[in-house]
């Protein structure tokens, strides 16, 4: 025998399930997805329109820094190549600058350290909702792109990373507005020390007007491209490919 309580519970669960699957079905329909995409494209265009290209993300004082800066994403790349580089204190590590550039570069950490550096205390905003403030020192990306002689055909900069999720390499991409922004740096130091492994040693991207998943860690390569449609899943980044996170993460 089924008790009344069980019956009511089952009916409730059934109705709830129908409602839930109904909502998710509506959401999954191509026309709804197109509408949402349209709204999100509007957000990017509107934000670009009202924000000066060179407008700076807020910078903070040393007193504003988070006591503990949360580690997110991978805390250490699993590849044996990375382990070897780490064991050699990144002496054999090279940043490959390639793609649509006149002079492909292969830069050691020492080369990068000798380039002009920018230090900034900025806020890192995770897409999940938490924020942490830290100090970053690194070379402005535009100096590297200028040294490599960026082609006029280049529209995006892709960052190839040493870490992976389940065998899928992490990567990210930004447009040239952000690539040439004064606060966009390839950071090799954090809070006054050489970058630690959990925070992306030896080099990570800081693109301060976007969310945390754009701040690629363990950067191994910088590639100038015309389009990222043919790279990995084609959406311009690891999370964009696997979870439909928006490529434009200014919001």
């Amino acid at each position: 025998m089924i008790s009344r309580r069980q019956l009511i519970g089952a009916a409730g669960a059934g109705a709830g399930g129908l409602l839930l699957s109904g909502c998710d079905k509506i959401a999954a329909s191509p026309s709804v997805q197109a509408l949402l995409e349209f709204g999100n494209a509007g957000t990017r265009l509107a934000q670009r329109a009202v924000t000066d290209r060179a407008a700076l993300a807020p910078e903070y004082s040393g007193a504003d820094m988070s006591p503990v800066f949360r580690v997110n994403g991978n805390a250490t790349p699993r590849s044996s190549d990375y382990a070897r580089l780490l064991a050699g204190r990144f002496a054999d590590w090279r940043l490959q600058v390639s793609g649509l550039v006149a002079h492909p570069l292969s830069l050691s950490l020492q080369d990068i350290g000798h380039m002009p550096a920018r230090t900034q205390i900025t806020r890192h905003d995770c897409v999940e909702g938490w924020s942490a403030i830290g100090q970053w020192t690194g070379v402005p990306l535009r100096l590297i792109l200028q040294q490599a002689g960026l082609s006029s055909r280049a529209r995006y900069i892709v960052f190839r990373c040493a870490d992976d999720f389940g065998g899928t390499p992490y990567y990210e991409s930004i447009d040239l507005i952000d690539a040439f922004h004064p606060q966009t740096i390839l950071a090799w130091a954090m809070n006054g020390r050489m970058l630690s492994v959990p925070h992306g040693a030896p080099l990570r991207l800081r693109v301060e007007r976007q969310l945390g998943y754009k701040q690629a860690k363990y950067v191994m390569g910088v590639e100038a491209v015309e389009s990222f449609a043919h790279i990995a899943g084609g959406k311009g980044g690891y999370w964009e490919d696997v979870s439909r996170y928006q490529w434009y993460a200014g919001i």
């Binding site: 959401a27 949402l36 709204g39 999100n40 439909r244 928006q246």
Partner: peptide, 17 residues
């Protein structure tokens, strides 16, 4: 919305609406 854990999907709805 969505009726399961989906941060990326919820953000799409939120910013479109």
């Amino acid at each position: 919305i969505p009726a399961h854990y989906d941060l990326a999907g919820a953000r799409q709805w939120h910013f479109a609406f």
